[in-house]
Amino acid sequence: MEVTGRRGWDRVWSLRAPFGAAAALTAAVTFLAVVDPHEPGHYPVCPLYYLSGLYCPGCGALRAVHDLAHADLAGAARMNLLFVFCVPVVITLWARWALRSWQGRPTRPDIARPAYLWGLLVVAAVFTVVRNTPLGQLLAP
């Protein structure tokens, strides 16, 4: 498909938000790939873990990003399995956002539907409870 004329450049210009978000995310992942979160002192400790000794649903996510950036899927899953399962969902949602922007269609906030948000909250809560029990020891970072 050739991009010519005003309409073509409008299509290209409409991709600035999705690709701007992708560029920011790429910069963050690159930083995490270079500055190892496995080394103590590089990043602050999770406040919930620091105050209570309990793991939140995000604990281990920085280390999981570092491991994914180094193509260590098993290491990333050991750090935060929920995060690893969320990565393909986020990539799919981003691709859908970029496609809809390219097509000039409004981006619907499907992810913001109350049922989806409540479902995500329940999954995060269950994950948090299970990873802090002796039964879910394998889910702890």
Rank of each mutant, 00 (worst) to 15 (best):
T133Y: 04
Y55H: 07
P40S: 11
F19G: 14
V87A: 03
T128A: 06
V126C: 10
L120P: 01
G58I: 00
L135C: 08
L25V: 06
T4F: 13
V34Q: 03
L73E: 15
T107N: 14
S101H: 03
E2C: 09
R78P: 09
V123M: 05
T92I: 11
T4W: 09
F85Q: 06
W9L: 15
A17W: 14
G8T: 14
L99W: 09
G119C: 10
C56E: 06
L93Y: 12
A33K: 03
P37T: 03
G20T: 08
R100T: 09
V89W: 12
W118T: 14
D72M: 10
R105V: 03
G53M: 02
V65E: 07
W94C: 01
Y50V: 00
L121H: 03
H66S: 13
C56W: 01
G119W: 06
A64E: 07
W97L: 01
W118K: 08
V130E: 07
L120N: 02
A24C: 13
P40Y: 02
V123K: 02
G75M: 04
V89Y: 12
V35E: 06
F83S: 00
A115V: 15
L32K: 02
R7A: 11
Y55T: 00
V34H: 04
N80C: 05
A71F: 13
L62R: 01
Y43Q: 01
A17Q: 12
R6L: 11
L99T: 09
L32T: 02
R63A: 04
R131H: 09
L15V: 12
V3N: 11
L135A: 14
A17F: 13
V12S: 14
Y116P: 00
C46T: 05
